[in-house]
Every structure is written in C-alpha cells, then in structure tokens.
C-alpha cells in the first residue's frame, strides 16, 4: 500500500503491459533429462526453473514414514546482480522448507513408507515469483516421475496496486517496487491452501480479495499445467500406441 510507484497505469495496464488479472506467459516441458526419475522445465514470463525428482528410493535410517527432501538453488547468473552462493543462504533454506511443506500436502506419502523422494529445483533466471514457479515445476517433475499425488499443487503470487486493485503473478520489478506481496500454494480442485506467505502489510479488508486473486491464479495455472501434461502424455504414449503393459 505504500509503494514507490503505482503498479497500474491510468489505462489499467501494468508495467509489462498486462492487465491486473493476467498471468505471465507459461511454457513448460516434462522429461527434460534422462538421469532423474522425473524432470521438468518451466517458464513463467522471464522466470525460468528446472526441477528434478529422484525416487522414490530406499530411505536411509530406520524410520517407517516416507521422507520428502527438497533443495532450492539459484544459479549465480540468474539475477541481474551476480549471486555469490547458489544455496545455503537463508532464503534458499526458507524456500527449501516451504517446498517440503507444500509438496508434502500433495504427495500421497502413505504409499511410500521407508522410501525417500528427493526434489531439486534450480532457478536459471529470476524475474519474480521464484518460489511459485519452482513449486509449479516441481509438480510437473513429480508427475513425470509417476509419483502418486492427491492432485496438482500449484502456487501463485498476488499483490495490490495503490488504488487497491488486486494484481496476479508479480514480476521482479513489481516485487521490488514496494507494495505487498502474497504467495499462495494450493490444491485448487480441493480448494485447500497448503502454504501462504505475505510480505508487507495488507489491510484486513483487502486480504480476502488478494487471497482469492491468488487462488484464481492457481486455478488458471493448474488448467494450463494439466493441458501440458495431457499433451505430453499423448505424444509420448502414442509412439508406442499406448501398448498395454501386463
């Protein structure tokens, strides 16, 4: 609410020409690498993330529950100012925990006792909403690996312009221009929120609206990802005419 700039022009357009509820362009691909059990690449505007999944495989130690292990890393060339360390700093450790939290809500861990699932994300280009895009890429990688999920888990960011108009999918410039930022990770069909984080203050009157804006963004992203997964499967499976196994 106390931003330096108004993120919305008089014509109702944002800095990159988008309308308030418009998502950035999403491009994605499943099965980018051969070594991991599952992998995916995701672009949301200019934010680009690679995700790789290893597992499920035997977990070390004797615990009976499943282990979900994540790592969040950002390439040193991903930001305009060079980043000295790809990971190990506070932000990466925070995001690692947030990823684990959100993905644990989606993965059917009861099917994987004693097994471990490793999910690694690598941000190649940072243009805002890193965590959200990383989570979306991770969902695709998990699906690529054939890991059982309750449903898609998707994240989206939202903010509020000076004139209290909610904005969906915040870019880097909008992020640093001041103004509050909300990130929501949700299971859209079940309408459940798995993770929520906000920075700066939202007036309680506006909070509901901004959360709903982010949820709407999640639903839209989910539809886009679902279409991409179906297209990928149809291409992959039809090469062998979906020959039945068994």
């Amino acid at each position: 609410m106390s931003g330096k700039y108004d993120l919305l022009s008089e014509q109702g357009l944002r800095l990159d020409g988008r309308r308030p509820h418009e998502l950035r362009r999403i491009k994605c691909k499943l099965g980018v690498f051969e070594q991991p059990d599952g992998s995916a690449y995701m672009e949301q505007g200019n934010t680009k993330v690679l995700a790789a999944v290893y597992g499920p495989h035997q977990a070390k130690g004797n615990q009976t529950e499943s282990v979900i292990n994540c790592q969040y890393s950002q390439a040193t060339f991903s930001t305009a100012e060079r980043k000295n360390r790809p990971r190990g700093d506070r932000k990466s450790l925070e995001f690692k925990l947030y990823l684990q939290q959100a993905l644990s809500a989606a993965i059917k861990s009861e099917l994987y006792p004693r097994s471990q699932i490793d999910i690694y994300v690598e941000v190649l280009q940072d243009d805002g909403a890193n965590y959200a895009v990383a989570l979306n890429a991770a969902t695709l990688a998990l699906i690529d690996a054939g890991i059982c999920l309750n449903e898609f888990i998707v994240a989206c960011t939202a903010s509020l312009s000076k004139s209290n108009i909610p904005l969906t999918d915040i870019s880097q410039f909008e992020e640093v221009s001041g103004g509050p930022k909300l990130t929501v990770a949700a299971l859209p069909t079940a309408e459940k929120i798995a993770f929520l984080e906000m920075s700066e203050r939202f007036h309680i009157d506006h909070l509901e609206t901004v959360i709903e804006t982010a949820m709407a963004g999640c639903r839209e992203i989910r539809d886009i990802l679902e279409a991409a997964v179906k297209e990928h499967l149809l291409h992959m499976g039809s090469a062998s005419d979906f020959a039945k196994v068994g």
């Binding site: 495989h57 059917k108 059982c148 309750n150 499967l233 979906f242 039945k244």
Partner: peptide, 26 residues
C-alpha cells in the same frame, strides 16, 4: 487418479499406469 496416465480396466479392477515410474514388482 493419483498419477498421469491411461486408464486400465481388468474386469472390475480400475488402475492408471503412468508411462514412467520406478519399477513396481509383481
């Protein structure tokens, strides 16, 4: 469905096989 795949119906047993996954032994 909990995975992405094609449906398989054997009598009354419904399953979905993902095209890629770790080996599930029988």
């Amino acid at each position: 469905s909990s995975v992405a795949g094609v449906i398989q119906k054997v009598n009354k047993l419904i399953s979905v096989r993902p095209l890629k996954s770790r080996y599930v032994g029988e």
